[in-house]
Every structure is written in C-alpha cells, then in structure tokens.
Design a binder for these strands. Structure first.
Lengths: 222, 222, 222, 222
DNA sequence: GATGAATGAGCTTTCATTCAT
DNA sequence: TATGAATGAAAGCTCATTCAT
C-alpha cells in the first residue's frame, strides 16, 4: 500500500469488502513469500492464507509476477518511510552529538532488522535475476533516497563545524556501513541478538566519530 | 554428500572421462544456477550446458539439491581460498602502511566482486529459506574464517604500535564494511564500475586510518 | 480418502459435470488398470480414456495410489453386493433343494466370473505386495461377509433337517470351493466356456449333496 | 525349464564361476521379484542382491523379461516336482485310506504354501496381463500334469472298489478344491496358521470321503 | 465480482538397456 | 567375460492460469 494509497477517506461502502480482500491478499502474499520464497510460493498457498479463491487474486493483481511486484514495492515503501522518519531525530548541533548519532543509528538498525524489511531485502536479492528492474526501482526509491537525506544531515553538521567531512554522500555510506557492519550477511538461521546489535552500533558510531569528529566529542566514560 | 570427496589423486586413466564429466557438470551447473537461479534452473538446461545426458547428473551427484550443495560449497571454498591468499600481502610494518592496506583492500574487493563469488553469494542468499544449513556452513568455513585471519593481521600491526585497536575482530569487520561499503547491495542490473570501486576502497582505507591510525600515516599527496 | 465420500444426495446442478467427470475417471481407471495392470497404467492413459486432463484426476482423487484404492474398493463393493443379492434366492426347504442350490451356485459363479469382479480380484492379488492393507480390507468387507451369510443359509437348512452340517462356516467354504473348483486359477489367456462352467457347478453341487445331503435329494435323472 | 538343466555334472572348472553367477542371479531375482513384484524390481536391486554388475545379468539372461521367464519356469518346475513327489505316498488300497489321504493332502498343502511356490503363483497371477503365455505354459507343465497324476491315483482306488468315482479328473479337482479350500485367496498380510491348515485338510478329506467313500472308511474316533 | 473446476506445460526422477574398457 | 558409465524414454506430480457459473 504504497504510502499514499490508503488515503481514500470514505470509500463507497460497496468497495469495503473489495478493498479488504485486496489487503488480505497482499498481506498473505508477503507472509507466504517470506516463508518459502517466490518460486516455492504457490498461488494456492497465498489464496488459502488470504482466505480467498485463487481467481480472486487474478482479478485483483493480474498475475503472480505482478502480485510480487506490488508486495515488494509496497512493503519497501513502508520500510523506507520508517527509515526516513528515523532521521527526524538526527542531532542538529554537537550537544550530545555522540549519543544523538547512537540514537539515530539504533533506530536505523531497528528498521533494518525489522522482519518485513529483512523479508523484502532477502526476496529482492533472491529474485534479482528474475526481476532486475524491480531491484533497481526499489533501490532508487529507497536506499538511494535515504542516503541522500542522511548525507544532507551530515553536511549540515559539517557546515556547522561539528564534523569534518569532505564528501557527505561517501560519509553517509560509510556511516551506514559501520553501524550495519556485518548485518547484511546475517539472516541465515541464527536470530539476531539485541545486545550484539547494540555493541555494533556503539562501536560503529565510535569509529565514525574518530574518523570524522572534531575531537570535542570524546567517548564518554571510557 | 561430503564436500571434499573428489580428492582422489592420480585417478586410473579410465576415470579421466568420468572426472571430466563430473567437472563439466559442476561448472555447467554453476553457470546455469547463476543465470536463472535454483528453482528456475532445470536439469535439462544443466545437462545440455554440460554436454551430458540428464541421468548422468544423477549418477554423479544424486539429486538437484545435492548438486546445488556441491556447487555452492566447492565454489565458496575456492573464493575463500582466494580471499585468504590476498591477505598474504598484508603489510607487516608501517612502511607504506596506507598503500599496503589499499593494495590488500583492492585485492579483497576484487575477490568480492568476482563473478563466481558474487554468484554464490547471491544464490546462497536467495535460497537461504530452502537451504539454511548451507548458508551457515559456507559462512562458517568462509567469511568467519577470513575475519579471524584479518583480525590477526590487524592485531599484529596494533602490537607493533602501527595501529590503535582495542578489539581486532571488530576492527576487521569495520575494515571490511568500509572498503566494501555499499557493495553488498549491488548486484542488480548495473555492472560495477572499476573507477568507482577504487574510489570507495581508497576512501574506506582513509577513514579506517583516520579512526585507527597513529597519525604518522597521513594521506599522501592530497 | 474415505471410500464412501460420494454420497451427497441431490447435488446442486452445477456439480453435475463434476460428478460426471469423477465417475468417468473411475470407470476409465478400472478399464485401464484391468487392461495393463497398476504399474503399467499411466495417468496419461487414464486421463485420455476418461476424456479429461491429467490434473483433473489429481483434483478428484489426489494420487495414483488413491485412485487405485478408490477403484478397487468401489468395484469390490459392487461385486460383493451382487453376490449377496444372489443369496436371496437361496432355497429355504428341501423342495427342489438340488435345483435350488444349483441355481444359486450358477448365480454365484456368474458373479465370480463377471469381468469387473475378475479384474478386481486379479489386480488385488497382483498388487498384494504393494497394497497389503487393501487386500485385507476388501476381503473383510467382501468374501468374509459373504461366507458368513452363506453359512447362515446353510445352517438354517441344517436346522430344518434338510442338510447334515456340523460346522456351517466350513461347509460354506467347501460349497464355494466345490462350485468354483479350479476357477480361481483361471483367468489366463483362455476365456471361460459357459458349458464347462455349468458342468463344474452341477458336479460341485452333486458332491456337496452327497457329502451333506440327507439322502432324499438324489441326483435327478441319472 | 528346466528341471534337467542343472544336471551338468563336472563342468569345466573355468565355467564354475560362470555357473555360480548365473545361479546367484536367478536366486537373487526370485527373492527380489517376490519382495517387490516384477515392475517394481529394478535390475539394480537384483544385481546388488546377486553381487554382480548389471550388464552381467544381460550377458546371462538377455533382458528383464527373459530373466523373469526363467525364474518363473525354473521355480515352478521345482515346485511341481515336489507336488508330484508328494503323490508317491498315495495310498494304494483302503487300508488306512483316510489317514493316507490326509497325509497326502498335508504334503500337498505344504507344497502349496511353500514360500517360493506362493511367490511364483502370486507373480504369475500378478503379471498375467503382461505374460499371458507364461501363465499358460506354467499351468500346462504344472497343475495340469499334477491333476492328471492325481486323477490316475484316484482312478486306481476306484477301480479297486475303494472309492466311488465316475469322473476321476473332476474328482481330482474337487479333492484339491476341498483340501485347499480358501487357501487361494490367502496370501495377504496374515501369515498362515499351521493349526488352521490342518483342520482344513482334515475336514476336506472328510467331506471328500463322505461324497466318494464306500462307507467302510468312517471318520475314526469322532 | 468471486469462485470451483479444468488444463497445458513442465519438472524431477527412475529405469532398462547399451557402450567402451 | 565382467563391469562402470552413460543414456533415451517415460512417469507421477505441480502450478500458473483460464472458463463457466
């Protein structure tokens, strides 16, 4: 449900059931795709999970491929919105710069390891061969936008003299790389431990500040 | 079953053809799997590509699943060996520390973006739901080993006073995160540009040294 | 699964075609199985013979094994019903006891050599290794029941003093053994000759009466 | 074939291994066919069970079909020989006629329920559709011969005034029918109980004597 | 618009059989 | 002669998709 699509305020009552079915289908599809992957997911499973008949899926979404595209773009858009929202709390000055960055990083990591976010990433990556355009599209409207926004925030801090950054986009990418660290390679059978996550984030921000800080924000405590 | 069962030295000449076929099958399988993914890859395609009859694949590998496992573990082992070999040229003192690290980083990135390495990573990730144990096994024998080795190298430099590192494993992870930067998310439709790659590596090493260097290895020239 | 699941009375007219197809499938399956046996019968043959597409068979019956079970139990139940019906005309007193027994025996033999009855017997026996439970089930609901019924009839005659029988179940088995004589071993390439059949039946009843009769029912004519 | 085929005394020593392999193949084949039936038996199983390589079977027997024919005819011939041998002890006069008949009947039933005899019967019946000529051939050289021999014995007794028999062949068939009773339909999952068997035999002989005896051989004891 | 039924295409796997050694 | 390896053919089963109600 791509962000703006839910804003039909009062749908004609006759369409309520219809929209409900559509929503049920999309949600069921995300669950099934996440569970067993694209190819292994049969429309029978999805129809059963959604509580509708198989042809109803065709009536609404047209084909399995199209259903997949909808589910991916919708879910990715929601994930992206959450990540962008996490930037709202980005620190604007060097007061508590370290803790501010850590807080933002924590939120970002939380978005990153969110179940549906992971599912979309895994599925997109998994089906990159079959849907290369889909991967590109989601990237352009998601991570790329997000990096731009983050770069903007960092640039503001650099302009204000709180950080020493030459290339904000690069710095943004490195910030993300450091706080996500080896997260991208996770997702196998082991669930993520929240303590480990926190350590990675703190260490990532620390390294980032050692590289780009002005020296005034030493690591507290230690 | 087991991965290393092909190590019969000096096969009787009668087996030459047999081993050739086996190798042809495994190579063809890697190509086909890379091209269209696990589920979409039919044994017909693989047999045709390998120039053998379909049942021959069963004679050698037993099943599609087993074939996949062999191809993945074999290829991953080769990739891993290359990565570990790249560490051989790791700098041992601070003479040309920066350029030494850059050189190693370049080699590692080259390994990382190597076609078969990318293929394995993509396939493993793609089929993580179907083969969770396989993902774990490859990780344990690949990346995990590699990080340990890299951490050892960094620790040696730290002991010699050339770097300031508290947690070598963490530093190793961060080094990799910085020089690979957003590489993990690549692999869509766009091929990787070698110039961009180089920039990312140089910037990654630079940030790493700003965070962990001793100040004696300032960026040359620039 | 269960055998008797087709007993929906007055199906909605929309189901007519469905039930027709199901029946067509079951009938075609019996024909094909009879003709070439279980293993040699391919679902393609059955589908073609039934005039439906292959997956339709799976929609209705689920699997080849299940299809076979249904066909066997259905047909055996029909055969069994016919045999039991033949007992209705069993003589109740010694008026024309011999001819009464002969008449019943003729009917029973007719049931026994009925095409579909022979087919089921042959198939069950043939596939006894693969479906031992099926053989047991059909026996329990068929021959075993039948022997009980026949034993009851004989016991009644014995009670009335028309026969001298100590163990009615044994006598029933022997009656069947005598009138079927070597029938069980038939079924090869030679069709059964109706004249031979009649002779066997008459001779069987004669022997039975010589062993169990009271002397009042001598062989007529001869 | 082939009762006589094994009587090559002192084969050239070079052929010992060869003949051993042939015998091993035939025995293994009988076991495998009995266990899983004709179609389900693969030549791999048989080769493994016989401890030879698959093509060796072709060298010796030519094809799966031919192998089956050999196994069936060989085993049937052995079974038939045993049944005929059982007739040797057939009583020649009315001294102990009843017990003599019971003894013979017991031997015959023992032959009938012998494992390999049952196996052959089941397999022949099972594959009657595929090998109708084989069924006929085995019958002609087995049961038909046997019934003739039994009829001869009965005729001799009748001639001597110990039995009252008009049609010896018919009487032979009825004798067999009575002592085998429902045996033909056995062979499912339940093993045969030797006590039941004995009861059936005794009762069968009793009925036979009541029908064909001269009155001098009343049931002893009872 | 929603559904039960039907289908064409395709997949993995097995097996009897034949080469080449 | 005995065998390891290879293969052509075919079978059971599944699935995305479409009619007809």
């Amino acid at each position: 449900m791509s962000v703006g699509e839910t804003e039909k305020k009062t749908p004609p009552p006759a369409d309520r059931g219809r929209l409900d079915k559509r929503r049920a289908i999309l949600e069921a599809a995300l669950r099934v795709f996440s569970r067993v992957g694209y190819t292994q997911a049969s429309l029978d499973m999805i129809a059963t999970e959604a509580g509708v008949a198989k042809p109803t899926i065709y009536n609404h979404l047209g084909s399995k491929e199209n259903l997949f595209r909808h589910v991916m773009t919708d879910t990715a858009a929601r994930s992206n919105a959450k990540s962008l929202a996490a930037l709202e709390s980005f620190p604007g000055d060097d007061e508590a710069l370290r803790t501010g960055l850590e807080e933002v990083a924590h939120k970002l990591v939380a978005c990153y390891v969110d179940e549906s976010s992971q599912a979309v990433r895994r599925l997109l990556y998994a089906e990159a061969v079959r849907f290369p355009d889909l991967l590109d599209a989601v990237r352009a409207s998601g991570p790329d936008q997000f990096i731009e926004a983050l770069a903007g925030r960092l640039a503001r801090l650099a302009n204000a003299g709180h950080l020493r950054i030459e290339d904000p986009v690069r710095a943004a990418n490195q910030f993300i790389a450091l706080v996500y660290e080896e997260l991208p390679t996770y997702g196998g059978s082991r669930p993520l431990d929240s303590g480990e996550l926190s350590d990675v984030v703190v260490a990532g921000v620390d390294t980032f500040l050692r590289a780009f800080g002005t020296g005034r924000t030493d690591r507290t405590g230690k």
